[in-house]
Simulated assay, not measured.
Amino acid sequence: MPVSCGGDRACYLPAIDRIQLPDRASFHSPAAFCGTWAYEQIHSTGHESRMKRDLGGVFGKPRFAREELVADLRTVLLGDRLEIGSEIESHAAYLGNWIELLKESPRVLFQVLNEARQAADLICPEVPGQPEQEGEADPA
């Protein structure tokens, strides 16, 4: 996925299928830069050439909240998979929108979790037979 650096905000631009990130010096740590990159990568998996998620929502509306929920959930999980962590505080800003979305349709959480897993697998597939991470429960 092409990434351009510069400017003052991070975003995914579906019309040109490109990620825009501020310069690395704008981030307070390398982990913050990597976490923001991962977040925008998750959004990019929704492009029509990949998972075809609806990326046309407006802030505060259910379509936007749904895409943000996919990105926020999967960024946390992808951060663990890539061992770059995530800053959950920044994801909390969307909590009110998620709550409204889940009140309207509680089943959307399961759909979003499935989409989030697929999105992360496009970026960094899980390796079958990989040893369990510390703290993970044995599925058997």
Results as ranks from 00 to 15, higher is better:
1 M>N: 03
2 P>H: 15
6 G>W: 01
6 G>R: 09
7 G>T: 05
8 D>A: 03
9 R>F: 05
10 A>W: 05
11 C>T: 00
11 C>H: 08
11 C>K: 08
13 L>G: 02
13 L>R: 06
14 P>C: 04
15 A>G: 11
15 A>W: 09
15 A>N: 03
17 D>G: 03
17 D>T: 04
18 R>P: 03
19 I>A: 01
20 Q>R: 09
22 P>V: 03
24 R>H: 09
24 R>Q: 06
24 R>K: 13
25 A>K: 03
26 S>R: 02
26 S>Y: 00
27 F>Q: 02
27 F>L: 00
29 S>H: 12
29 S>T: 08
29 S>E: 06
30 P>F: 07
31 A>E: 13
31 A>G: 10
31 A>Q: 14
33 F>K: 04
35 G>A: 07
38 A>I: 03
40 E>M: 01
40 E>Q: 02
41 Q>H: 04
41 Q>N: 12
41 Q>C: 11
43 H>C: 13
44 S>E: 07
44 S>I: 14
46 G>R: 04
47 H>F: 10
47 H>Y: 02
48 E>M: 12
48 E>D: 10
49 S>A: 04
50 R>N: 02
55 L>Q: 10
55 L>Y: 06
55 L>R: 08
56 G>H: 04
57 G>M: 02
57 G>Q: 04
58 V>F: 12
58 V>K: 15
59 F>I: 13
60 G>Y: 06
61 K>A: 13
62 P>Y: 01
62 P>E: 09
63 R>I: 11
63 R>L: 05
65 A>R: 02
65 A>L: 06
66 R>M: 09
67 E>K: 07
69 L>W: 01
70 V>K: 01
70 V>L: 10
71 A>N: 08
71 A>Q: 01
74 R>Q: 15
78 L>R: 01
79 G>R: 04
82 L>C: 11
82 L>H: 09
83 E>L: 00
85 G>M: 04
86 S>L: 09
86 S>M: 12
89 E>C: 07
90 S>G: 11
90 S>N: 10
91 H>K: 07
91 H>M: 01
92 A>F: 09
93 A>N: 12
94 Y>A: 08
96 G>C: 08
97 N>C: 06
97 N>Q: 13
98 W>D: 08
101 L>F: 00
102 L>E: 02
102 L>R: 06
103 K>W: 10
104 E>R: 15
105 S>H: 07
105 S>G: 11
105 S>T: 05
106 P>G: 13
107 R>K: 12
108 V>P: 05
108 V>G: 03
109 L>G: 07
109 L>E: 01
110 F>I: 04
111 Q>R: 14
111 Q>G: 13
111 Q>K: 12
111 Q>Y: 06
113 L>W: 08
116 A>Y: 00
116 A>H: 01
117 R>N: 10
117 R>H: 12
119 A>Q: 15
119 A>C: 14
120 A>D: 13
120 A>L: 14
123 I>L: 15
123 I>D: 14
123 I>W: 14
124 C>S: 14
125 P>M: 10
125 P>V: 06
126 E>V: 06
127 V>N: 13
127 V>I: 15
128 P>G: 15
128 P>D: 14
131 P>S: 12
131 P>A: 14
134 E>L: 03
135 G>A: 15
138 D>W: 12
138 D>L: 14
139 P>Y: 06
140 A>E: 15
